[in-house]
């Protein structure tokens, strides 16, 4: 077990020493509390280095955990965004531009080195006991801020099902970009209620200002760009992954919500 900064030189040494045949890249800074330059460096440069070393040291399979956020939440989004949909996140949520860039880098890597079985996995909102996801942080806030008059459909998946999806992707030696979808979608209000939270409905103009200020002073974990994700849908079509691997989530919606502890 190594604990190394993947921007440092020592990182490549791990590849030389261990000669891995499969690499699973989960090392992203996903919260917005880090300085944006550091976050961008770790996420984009880090991903680039990981892939470079994979290619250099003969790695056979490479799996990268992207996110459904890369599609962006827009009012005209169809409800079953498939893998060919444009990655529009940066249009209104510039802070996660680095996630879009690393996803694009990985997709490019996929096509450039077909001998390496690369898989880009875009899961929906991950919830679970252990995982520190953005949606988990959001739902665990005591009074969850929501926009008055908006209640978008959201899909959820349990952390163990994501692990299973990664394992299956490796086992079946697939390559490509895949949306990984959980058991179904519910409106945000239902998710908040089922995880034991209470909503704090805010009118939008006030909310954008308040959240912007709170984020600036470190009182709130999300920038105002994230507001679009609690207004508009960003739901995915996971049929390509199911067709290729036969994946089926084990944890239903009730179990997923039950696993969120405050």
């Amino acid at each position: 077990m190594y604990q190394i900064d993947l921007r440092k030189k020592a990182f490549e040494d791990v590849f030389r020493k261990e000669q891995p045949s499969v690499v699973v890249h989960l090392a992203f800074i996903r919260h917005c509390r880090a300085a944006p330059e550091v976050r961008h460096e770790v996420n984009v440069l880090g991903t680039k280095r990981v892939m470079e070393f994979c290619q250099k040291h003969g790695v056979k399979q490479f799996v990268i955990l992207s996110s459904h956020y890369v599609y962006g939440a827009l009012p005209e989004n169809p409800y079953f965004l498939d893998e060919d949909a444009p990655l529009n996140a940066s249009r209104t949520y510039p802070e996660i531009r680095d996630l879009v860039e690393s996803d694009a880098l990985a997709t490019g890597f996929l096509w450039k080195y077909p001998e390496i079985h690369s898989v880009v996995i875009r899961p929906v909102n991950i919830l679970g006991y252990y995982v520190h996801s953005a949606i988990g942080t959001y739902l665990k806030i005591r009074r969850v801020p929501t926009m008055i008059g908006f209640d978008p459909m959201m899909q959820f998946i349990h952390e163990e099902d994501v692990t299973e999806a990664i394992a299956i992707a490796i086992e079946k030696r697939i390559r490509g970009v895949f949306n990984v979808v959980g058991p179904g979608a519910v409106p945000l209000g239902v998710a908040i209620h089922e995880t034991g939270g209470k909503t704090l409905p805010m009118p939008e103009p006030l909310a954008r200002f308040a959240i912007g200020q709170a984020f600036k002073y470190g009182l709130y974990p999300f920038p105002p760009g994230a507001i679009d994700f609690i207004k508009y849908p960003c739901t995915l079509d996971g049929s390509r992954f199911v067709k290729e691997t036969g994946f089926s989530p084990l944890f239903g919606l009730r179990e997923i919500f039950a696993s969120v502890t405050r």
């Binding site: 009012p75 005209e76 926009m147 008059g149 908006f150 939008e204």
Partner: peptide
């Protein structure tokens, strides 16, 4: 879908945005 309240109502009664994919 940008209209408050109406966007929720429209979806709950079966309406969607008229994109070809939908």
């Amino acid at each position: 879908p940008t209209i408050p309240w109406f966007n929720v109502f429209m979806h709950r009664v079966g309406g969607v945005v008229g994109t070809p994919k939908n």
